[in-house]
């Protein structure tokens, strides 16, 4: 189990010498990823979701709060323990084009870490070759086709599968998928999402799924938790379908309203909201972080920042002074279901 409590991270000034200004990337985030569980994190670009994923993989430091892996605080681990534990949490990058070394074949990429494992566990060289083929097959690739090839000879979808197979060489306990399908054709996304789904079911991997595509989050972790991040703060969290169907925070509602409606097959939800105006994170408001963009903002929203509180249904939390459940996501057309 991986758990973060009160995690905060601030990036020091961006914008040159004069505009020296701290940018909070995470604000007191609490999150639990149970073994075999799934947590999806959604939010727009720059909301801190990538930073959160990188901290969980040990690739980024944090300012305050704690990160617990199997109950052990990361900052108190020895270097060896740290390395050992974070190795079990593998990151799947967004960009399959830069996540593979362009000068190394798939075979070299896969064998590098497998050899390390083989020598640590006294296994033969033949085992590494076998294992590499096995893992590629697991992610739906033909080993004889892929192994001798360089990354640029493979399609984006195939590369992302290689990236997943490479992560599996160290027998990880958790995967952090950071926008893992954003750069892949829509028609091929489901294949990748299906692998993540199967890895959870078959190997019991836990999954932190970072995305802006809520439907994809639903596909890989329908039984899991959904966290909505806005400017580094968790503004709403709960079971995936509860949040999708009965969101109470206006920001979540805007995110869900932005999902395209497949006209003909679906109709827009009755309370669908118009898109928010662009984020301006230059100002740090004293009150609710969303107040300047919120369609439902009232005067008191400018004064105090709402804490994350229970919202009725079990496990559903929100941080809003004036929450109201709205039905914003598309509804399947009943007419279409008469076929077949």
């Amino acid at each position: 189990m991986i758990e973060v409590r009160g995690l905060s991270k601030t990036f020091a000034g961006r914008g040159g010498l004069l505009g020296h200004r701290a940018v909070p990337a995470l604000r007191e985030v609490d999150l639990r990823l149970a073994s075999g569980g799934a947590v999806s994190v959604i939010g727009e670009s720059g909301c801190g979701k990538t930073t959160l994923g990188r901290i969980l993989c040990g690739l980024e430091s944090y300012d305050s709060g704690s990160l617990l892996i199997e109950g052990r605080e990361a900052k108190q681990m020895s270097l060896a323990e740290r390395r050992e534990r974070f190795q079990r949490i593998q990151l799947i990058h967004q960009d399959p084009y830069s996540a593979l070394n362009p000068t190394r074949t798939v075979r070299q990429t896969m064998l590098a870490s497998l050899r390390l494992r083989a020598s640590a566990t006294n296994r033969s060289k033949a085992w590494t070759e076998r294992r590499a083929a096995e893992l590629l097959e697991l992610v739906g690739l033909d080993p004889s086709y892929c192994l001798p090839r360089y990354p640029h000879m493979l399609s984006g979808g195939m590369r992302q599968r290689v990236v997943i197979a490479r992560a599996l060489t160290v027998d990880p306990e958790a995967l952090v998928a950071d926008e893992a399908v954003a750069m892949i054709d829509v028609s091929l996304r489901l294949g990748i999402l299906g692998i993540l789904r199967r890895l959870r079911a078959d190997l019991g991997l836990s999954l932190l799924f970072i995305t802006h595509d809520v439907a994809a989050a639903r596909y890989v972790g329908e039984d899991g938790q959904l966290y909505v991040l806005y400017r580094g703060q968790v503004v709403e969290q709960g079971p995936v379908d509860e949040i999708v169907q009965r969101p109470t925070h206006p920001y979540t509602q805007c995110l869900l309203s932005a999902i395209p409606v497949m006209r003909g097959l679906e109709r827009p939800g009755p309370d669908r909201l118009v898109p928010l105006r662009p984020l301006d994170d230059n100002v740090e408001p004293p009150g609710c972080l969303l107040a300047d963009r919120c369609p439902q903002a009232q005067d008191d929203c400018l004064l105090g920042r709402p804490p994350l509180l229970p919202a009725g249904a079990a496990g559903h939390l929100h941080a809003c002074l004036h929450p109201e459940a709205r039905s914003v996501v598309a509804i399947p057309e009943q007419t279409a279901s008469s076929g077949r």
């Binding site: 195939m158 028609s187 091929l188 439907a215 999708v244 869900l256 097959l265 679906e266 996501v329």
Partner: peptide, 23 residues
């Protein structure tokens, strides 16, 4: 097949099926 391959926000999520083959 293309329409089936898209995960949707409501309804039965497991109905989505990947497009076979490669582009």
């Amino acid at each position: 097949a293309l329409l089936r391959s898209i995960p949707r926000i409501s309804g039965d999520i497991s109905a989505a099926e990947p497009l076979p083959g490669r582009p």
